[in-house]
Nucleic acid binder design. Structure first.
Lengths: 155, 155
DNA sequence: ACGTCGGAATTGACGTGTCAATTCCCGGAG
DNA sequence: CTCCGGGAATTGACACGTCAATTCCGACGT
């Protein structure tokens, strides 16, 4: 046996692959479920919600485009399209000329508050309460480990 | 202290929320990284890959539309659009009249084999090898727990 | 003051996903 | 044989994301 003792060392990859698939499919399903609920309850997409959240947390409910883009972690152009659509729906407003800020409208702020209680309830039900304390802690560690792998030099 | 002893009971929700956000953002980033690599290395989207994988595993490299839809877990119409696009690129072919099957072409099969080695390498690097054995096991349990919450009656 | 240079923001074109029709085919009833 | 019902598959219209231009504005040198 070229296995260094009884310690848990990698067997094949098929078991690992199974975990990978379960993990991916489940997180995907979770994301998509939360997204449907949000849509059904508040007519907001996850993207809408992300923007509203960032603006809501911002000082004066207003941010420069590029700051907002960083806050939600998107490309500029994606944000621009998104803001355009949200502006048409009256959730946000562009301030000033070409440069200088996107602001939450009153309507946007109200919509966000309404949506967020339902959304947080859903997150609690489908994630927080679905896991034991240990599992929740493990989830945090796993996220950190994955992120650090993602941040490595690239291959 | 209204905390019932040293036992691990929920504090506020803000710590839990932080874990939730980390978790979501990280899995999202991971998915998107794998997807870019696949695209760069093989000119395939994740959706393309999913379809090729399902057909490759299928008997005779051919499946009925609805069976294929179940295999990848999509809506019918999404599959139809996807297959249409893949057909134009020569990766798959529709058989028979309106009903009766989508088949992998030789080109599709070859493309899939090429893509899968790179993809599996990436999965190993960014997921399997990024986690300790314990974390990998925990990931499996977390997926199971989340899935079972998702499968509950709905709210 | 004028040009122009550079980055910020936007736009357009295109591939993709969803929802609501719509088409197509098969099987049974008359 | 013909007609009709219903489910499978497709299509169309529209929302969304990405990439490659393009526009816009302000700073800097001369």
């Amino acid at each position: 046996m070229d296995q260094p003792g009884p310690g848990p060392r990698r067997t094949t990859t098929s078991e690992q692959l199974r975990v990978w698939r379960d993990f991916v499919e489940t997180t995907e399903a979770l994301r998509s479920r939360l997204s449907s609920r949000l849509q059904a309850e508040s007519s907001l997409s996850s993207s809408d919600y992300a923007v509203l959240l960032a603006l809501h947390d911002a000082d004066g409910h207003c941010l420069r485009s590029s700051t907002l883009a960083d806050a939600v972690g998107w490309e500029r152009s994606r944000l621009s399209h998104q803001v355009g659509r949200m502006e048409r729906r009256g959730l946000v407003a562009r301030k000033g000329g070409r440069s200088a800020g996107v602001a939450l409208t009153d309507d946007g702020a109200a919509t966000f508050r309404r949506a967020s209680v339902a959304h947080l309830r859903a997150v609690r039900q489908l994630f927080v309460d679905a896991l034991t304390d240990d599992q929740l802690a493990a989830a945090g560690e796993i996220a950190a480990a994955l992120r650090s792998a993602l941040d490595r030099p690239e291959s």
